[in-house]
Simulated scan of single mutants.
Amino acid sequence: MDTDTTTAPSGTPSAHAMPRGLFVLSLLYGGMAVLAGFLAFKQVQLPFTNLAVEAGIFAFLILVVVSSTIAQVYGDATARRLVWWGFLPLAVSAVLIFLVLSLPASPEMLEYRASDLAAFETVLSQTPRIMAAGPAAYLVSLLLNVWLFSRLRGKTSGEGTTTGLMIRGAIASALSQAIDSVIFVTLAFYGEFDITNLLIGQVIAKVVLSLVLVPPLIALFVRIARRLG
């Protein structure tokens, strides 16, 4: 991995400092890992289609873009470590959510903002199955994305060009997002209702978004990361 020559507080260069680009991408990754769960509460309709998808996919696709960018610029081993460390903000946020939901609301909020409190608790309260399904789908799909993205290196047309980079990103993202939908929908809802239509719709919507949004974003993020260092 490239090293940054940032000066340490003592005045001596730090040979093992994290590259600035990796530092920025890691911060973005942690934020998106937490935000995806909150955005997923809303279902949005994709333009020009009848497909609906949970809004958390937009944050999750940024996770795909960041992990692919890190695999491209800093190596797939670094990208895999980031995926595993992504459980840390997820775990901390889950503990804090449980703590906040357990604490009693203030009398003023109960009296004057009862509807806000109800909405807050509705969004943050999730069933154990959904809470388990999210991290499971996260881990499998993002590790698969990094693996596919790295394995396709040198096997796509235009390799070494922006076009080749975008093709790899599109293929890896589309396949990993299809697997993500299967894992999440099955673990979260199987047995509660017929999941066939939901599953098909989620897979199609996520694949479409992966093919449209992920490739240009990976090209942009790789350029930014290399410029940052």
Rank of each mutant, 00 (worst) to 15 (best):
A105F: 06
I195S: 01
A71C: 04
E111G: 11
P135Y: 09
V203W: 00
I57G: 08
L27T: 15
K206T: 06
F38M: 12
L187E: 13
V65M: 11
V203D: 01
L25H: 05
L110Q: 14
D180W: 08
M109D: 05
T156S: 06
W84E: 13
E108C: 12
A91R: 03
V207F: 07
S106Y: 02
V203P: 00
G229P: 01
L35R: 09
L213H: 07
A94V: 11
A114C: 09
A132G: 10
P19V: 05
A225E: 04
L211D: 11
D4G: 03
L28I: 11
A105S: 10
G154S: 10
T162L: 14
V92S: 07
G21V: 00
Q43P: 10
L117W: 02
A170V: 12
F48K: 06
S141Q: 05
I204N: 03
S26E: 06
Q177K: 04
T3E: 08
V207H: 02
F184P: 08
V214D: 12
A8W: 05
V203G: 04
F60C: 04
L175E: 12
L199I: 07
A118E: 15
V24S: 06
T49L: 01
A71I: 02
G169C: 03
S106W: 00
D180H: 04
V73A: 06
L165W: 02
D2T: 12
T69Q: 04
L51R: 00
F38E: 09
W84I: 14
T162F: 03
G154V: 09
E192A: 11
L96P: 09
R80S: 15
S141N: 02
L51P: 00
